[in-house]
Design a protein around this nucleic acid. Structure first.
Length: 554
RNA sequence: GUCCCCGUAGCUCAGUGGACAGAGCGGCUGCCUUCUAAGCAGCGGGCCGCAGGUUCGAAUCCUGCCGGGGACGCCA
């Protein structure tokens, strides 16, 4: 990346200046911070190193800047370096290098976005992981969009990433689900079997029961008063998992692993980690339950691991699950995406990771604020327990996959979302997603219409690209690798849609100001065709990272 | 009461400690006989919640307060 090259040049200049005695031997920040100035006249890149060094060096920032500039290695990529008050050094890229990047981008294709900050480090991203007790709702869709984008970006950044979905296939909720399904199933056969009070009231349970009847006939009926047959529960769970897989697939999310909760026990990891906690004297028994003595660590209260009923809690299972992630499967880092309603769970789990003798920083938990689904002024419940569920499927059907992804991706995980179904439908046509896709479609049309001008385009001279709009578009394309780095480091995919929009703006501006197909200027036309093709490639790559389509026609 | 997140334009939101705070939507004015007007150009709009502090420099970091959301269960 050119930004890193400039950073290196600045660092070299500082060292050279110190060797030459032009700059006192003060500690240099590592790495030298290179910024992108907000204003174009301040150049493509800038460093405030002189301002940072001024105090320690007991020198005027401007003088330090001049010294740095003097010792900068020569580069044909840099047109001009200027030192300006209060102490910035600004770098202007050379036009010839900029235009040469059009060829570079075209050659690189989709790999243009690839960087290698990950160096093959093994990471896992676990997201959505909703219980298979009902269809996904709109809130789940948010984390599908965010998790999917994160996985793709981390891969582009050079990490070896595994996407995982963790689901309960046993436990309290599944048991309740099974009882509800059995009640609905019996009702289909005329039995007076009420839905349990704590059961799942949604209409989808009736649909599920009907499917069970169609597939299994009356074979699941048991004598009055007998519990729900396990086979029926399993049938229901598998069916719901099919719904979930299908919804996630529509949002472009593909998991590498579907991890069953039971595996935590079957693998023996649960017992291992519990034994480990006992060995470290972090387990106490009290009031008939088994507790994780987090109060001995960095918490104000203990947490229950094994209930007095003998059943493990969600927390203890999760501890076993994370032991499995780190120790058995050997991930260097694990990223979990959780809703804000699970935030209280972060501290104890991190303490457990620490108690395993691991660095808790290897567990990164993204706490995402919740989605409130609305229809106009009315707030809709997202709970599967209540009858009124607005499913993710309905939302996708109403709003569209791409608009849905774009909307969910556009907001930082730190802010709660009000998802208004009415508004989403209304705004459908004005959704910024179409602005981005439109740019891509426009380019596709130009390339289609090129006719004879398309001949010999690969040999076109990109040096003919001198218009301000052309150069701005190239500059904007060059941001993508830097964006990948930002998103990967901060784990914030919401920067993607903003970049996509800026890139589209740069293209639309170019489109207005520079006619691409012009028989009277064939050489220039061919150079512009190249630029357009490069822009198409970068737009498509960006859309792909977000899981969205890049249409050739709109 | 304790803990987490948020407070930026009329609305929805961006904004790695840097140079004059941005976008979309909405409002107003213009631009289609040349590659898609799902586009472009322009105008208007801001004590960056409030008060202190740190810093050469704060929307950004720290403290306190106010306002909104969330968590504090032998549910998940």
């Amino acid at each position: 990346m050119i930004r890193d090259e400039i950073g290196l040049m600045v660092a070299q200049a500082a060292e050279a200046a110190q060797e030459a005695g032009d700059l006192p031997a003060v500690a240099l920040p590592e790495p030298a911070a290179i910024e992108r100035p907000q204003r174009a006249e301040h150049g493509d890149y800038a460093t405030s190193l002189p301002l940072r060094l001024a105090r320690a060096a007991r020198a005027n920032p401007i003088d330090i800047g001049e010294v740095l500039a003097k010792h900068l290695p020569a580069s044909d990529k840099i047109e001009r370096v200027e030192v300006v008050p209060p102490g910035f050094v600004n770098f202007h890229l050379s036009q010839s290098w900029l235009t040469s990047q059009v060829d570079a981008i075209l050659t690189a294709g989709a790999t243009f976005a690839r960087i290698d900050i990950g160096r093959g480090q093994k990471q896992q991203v676990e997201f959505v992981s909703a219980n298979p007790t009902g269809p996904l709702h709109a809130g789940n869709g948010r984390w599908a969009a965010v998790g999917g984008a994160l996985v793709r970006v981390l891969r582009a950044a050079g990490y070896e990433v595994e996407a995982e979905y963790y689901f309960n296939d046993a436990g309290t909720q599944i048991e309740v689900f099974g009882r509800t399904l059995y009640a609905r199933y019996q009702q289909l056969f005329g039995r007076d079997a009420p839905v349990p009070e704590d059961g799942y009231a949604g209409a989808y349970m009736i649909e599920l029961a009907e499917q069970a009847r169609d597939k299994l006939g009356d074979s699941m009926l048991r004598l009055e008063g007998e519990p729900a047959p396990e086979e029926l529960t399993t049938f229901g769970v598998e069916h719901v998992m099919d719904w979930i897989r299908s919804d996630l697939g529509r949002l472009g999310v593909e998991y590498d692993t579907w991890y069953r909760e039971q595996t935590v026990y079957e693998s023996g990891n649960f017992d291992k980690v519990m034994a480990m906690l006992r060995e470290r004297d972090l387990v106490v028994e009290r009031e008939g339950a088994v507790w994780f003595a987090t109060s001995q660590m960095d918490a104000d209260k203990d947490e229950v691991l094994i209930r007095s009923s003998g059943l493990p809690t969600y927390l203890s299972t999760d501890i076993g699950y994370h032991y499995d992630k780190f120790v058995r499967r050997g991930f260097d880092r694990v990223i979990d995406i959780w809703g804000a309603d699970h935030q209280g769970h972060v501290r104890p789990l991190k303490l457990a990771v620490e108690a395993m003798g691991l660095d808790p920083d290897r567990l990164h938990i993204i706490i995402g604020q919740l989605v409130t689904l609305k229809r106009g002024e009315e707030t809709l419940k997202l709970s599967k327990r209540s009858g009124d569920v607005v499913t993710l499927r309905e939302v996708i059907d109403e709003v569209g996959v791409d608009a849905c992804l774009y909307f969910f991706l556009s907001r930082s995980a730190d802010v709660p979302i009000d998802f208004d179904l009415e508004l989403a439908k209304q705004q459908n046509a004005e959704n910024p997603v179409y602005y981005v896709q439109y740019a891509h479609a426009r380019i596709a049309r130009i390339l289609d219409n090129a006719g004879d001008l398309a001949q010999n385009v690969e040999n076109a001279d990109v040096g003919l690209l001198t218009h301000e709009a052309e150069l701005s578009l190239i500059r904007k394309m060059l941001v993508l690798p830097e964006l990948i780095e930002t998103v990967a480091r901060k784990l914030e995919p919401h920067h993607l849609p903003y970049y996509a929009q800026e890139l589209a703006t740069s293209f639309h501006d170019f489109y207005e100001k520079c006619r691409v197909l012009d028989e009277e200027q064939p050489q220039l036309s061919r150079a512009r065709l190249k630029l357009a093709a490069a822009a198409k490639s970068v737009l498509a790559t960006t859309l792909e990272l977000m899981g969205m389509s890049a249409p050739d026609k709109m």
